[in-house]
Simulated assay, not measured.
Amino acid sequence: MKKLKVAFVGLGNICRERHIPGLMKLPHVEIIGVINRTEPSSKKVAQEYKIPHVYSTWIELVNDPEVDIVWIGTWPYLHAPVSISALKAGKHVFCQARMAMNLLEAKQMYETACRTGKVAGLCPVPFGMTYNKTISRMRREGILGEIYFVKVNSFNDFNLEPNKPLHWRKDHRISGQNVLTLGMYIELIHRWFGWTKSVWGSYQIFTPTRNTPEGEIIEIQIPDQVQAQLELDCGAIAQLTISGMSNYPQESVEIHTQYKTLYYDVLEDKLYELPKNGERKIIIPQEEDFYDVKNWSVEKDFIEAVSMGKEYHPDFEDGLKYMEVLDAIYKSAHSNQKVSIHSTTL
């Protein structure tokens, strides 16, 4: 089998911790090039991981005929231009989440992937991966019955300190409309329960300006906390509270169904059943349902999608779906009205 040649645009923490080790385990993959934000950084990571070529620009990288796969690990502001250019150049694309700055960019990425027929995937949120097959099986076998209500609580202190310098995740010029863990939980809800058809949303910004490390004052456009109610195609309601204004960290998902109530502790990565009487009991995945997140197969799965035509998720359609919800939350917050989602997928 011909080796697939991969080049990285942006080789940050998750690429070093997950993607590079995952790709290096695969015998038919060769990492041939990299470009980071600065030339010294590019040369440093190239030396560290024995990557033979350092590019001067990402445009040079995506147009290199030797490159089969462009692996994007940058901040969101480059996701659309690099993905679209790479797809048009005939490359397959793996892009770091969150997918894009906004819905318009996500649509352009998705449509380009459809036109070119190349494999275009996103890095999955690890939340819930341990229990994907368990939830699917419980739904398929009727163990849960109808899904009625899903409640997501995501609390941390990321935005709590008003004098904290501007972080890139709060800079709309870099992160676009992406907010804290909001897109991650929308992806999880879609993975477990299906698409969203309408949204009510509101948000708050408590610190209207922040200083960059260089002292520039920036008006904050990314919310400090968000509340959203999603109406899902399956008939359930999902209520999300995402806040960076809490002194008490919590990441949890409650699932209220016809026959059972489940509680997913995200920080522990444990799924529990909450009986009507008595203590909660942990749900252990069946052997055939088990997925080891610490040793995930994301890189292998994507490479097999390229080389063998296997299905890969999340793909750009999955990403577009959560960007549609994110856009609808902003629109609902501005209009104080429910916003219906009209799918733009082909």
Rank of each mutant, 00 (worst) to 15 (best):
M184V: 00
M184F: 04
Y185L: 00
Y185T: 02
Y185G: 00
Y185M: 01
I186S: 04
I186Q: 10
I186N: 05
E187G: 04
E187Q: 11
E187R: 03
E187A: 09
L188E: 03
L188T: 03
L188W: 05
L188V: 07
L188Q: 02
I189F: 01
I189Q: 00
I189H: 01
R191Y: 04
R191F: 05
W192S: 01
F193C: 00
F193N: 00
F193D: 00
F193S: 00
G194P: 05
G194M: 08
W195F: 12
W195N: 12
W195M: 11
T196P: 10
T196G: 13
K197W: 06
K197D: 13
K197T: 10
K197Q: 12
K197R: 13
K197A: 07
S198P: 10
S198R: 11
V199R: 06
W200Y: 10
W200V: 02
W200A: 05
G201R: 05
G201I: 07
S202W: 12
S202C: 14
S202N: 15
Y203M: 14
Y203R: 12
Y203N: 11
Q204F: 09
Q204G: 14
Q204P: 09
I205N: 10
I205S: 09
I205F: 10
F206P: 11
T207C: 07
T207D: 04
T207V: 13
P208L: 14
T209P: 10
R210K: 13
R210D: 04
R210G: 03
N211D: 11
N211Y: 12
N211M: 09
T212K: 06
T212V: 01
P213W: 10
E214Y: 04
E214D: 03
E214F: 02
G215E: 09
G215P: 02
G215C: 05
E216H: 04
E216G: 02
